[in-house]
Design a protein around this nucleic acid. Sequence first.
DNA 1: TTCATTCCTTAACATATGTTAATGCATAGG
DNA 2: CCTATGCATTAACATATGTTAAGGAATGAA
Lengths: 192, 192
Amino acid sequence: MDAMKTYDIFKSISPLTEDSWIDLQSLFEPLDLKRNEYLVREGSRVSYCYILLDGVVRVFYNKEGNEYNKTFFIPGMFPTPLTALLSDAPSRLSFQALLPSKLIRFSYKGFRELFSKHQCLESFMLRVLEREWINKERHDIQMVTNDATTNYLIFRDEYPGLENQIPQYHIASYLGITPIQLSRIRAQLAKS
Amino acid sequence: MDAMKTYDIFKSISPLTEDSWIDLQSLFEPLDLKRNEYLVREGSRVSYCYILLDGVVRVFYNKEGNEYNKTFFIPGMFPTPLTALLSDAPSRLSFQALLPSKLIRFSYKGFRELFSKHQCLESFMLRVLEREWINKERHDIQMVTNDATTNYLIFRDEYPGLENQIPQYHIASYLGITPIQLSRIRAQLAKS
DNA sequence: TTCATTCCTTAACATATGTTAATGCATAGG
DNA sequence: CCTATGCATTAACATATGTTAAGGAATGAA
């Protein structure tokens, strides 16, 4: 069932041959995380790609003790330290499960080594980066041009129900404001 | 000379076969822009990739008459509407030469059609996106975790001499502050 | 049950940044 | 040469948001 679900996720991104899927699948390892456990810690070396099947993961960076939430991952997304993998450098980002989460992980190196055998996997990787790029740009434009109230409303739309499952200070950090300011915004919205 | 320069730029990103380079080069068209002329206007359909050989280009988005500078391109960079090309949608971004500029453009479709003949070009494209991703992430972390003063100093480092060649309100917009605030920051820095 | 912990809210206050407006400098065009 | 234009600076003021602190609801442990 998980395998099927994963296959659907992959297929929806870029077509894969049956052979390539078999080889790729042989790299898969299930991974279960408790609430607040980490997939990746800042400063660590990384070697895996991740697929989130259940739960929620946040990615954040840390500067002088302050955490800045960059985004949240929900099932079907890839909470993967792309930059660290691509540049083969320690991760500047941390990935943490905010709820009990179910994932699959697979070796990035192993994946990459399949490129020469399966051209469709390199095309797949290109397609993944294209999608990430498009999404990031849309997200960035949103965050810069809107005020915090608008972005909070968009957050509620994009992650239905999530605001009741995680602490609000995580949402505030994601919006680039303090929890107090988010509280004021919520009070303001409740009035109107 | 330009051809040589361009070849160096490409080679430094990912190895290309001689054949692929010949095919690719046949797509190239020179393009010269005057100060303030546009490569791409918001809302337009796009079909070209660009290489900047001389000058400076800014990319910005527009919301209700306000312009938000996203980044500046200097020679050797690719002021290309990636998202619009990848998603085949009208560009949400505008690209404008801030100084008299010399570019090369080539058809994205034509480039893409060479992928099946030259595998190395698809690898090249993947490599470009990887680099863009890494740079963007570094840049984003910087902008979020630093204050405007620090980012202004970084800007001066990353684009030496540029601050004397373009209006300061473009820099202010890039930093996410008003020109008045930038002026205050500059006054503050001059004191110490 | 009671107590401790976590986290949201609210208020009072401090501060940074935006807004409006005036001034002055440099440059280009007549 | 003079004038108009574009741009940077500065000041005075308004406002949004951060900071500190206190209180209270919800949750879980003893």
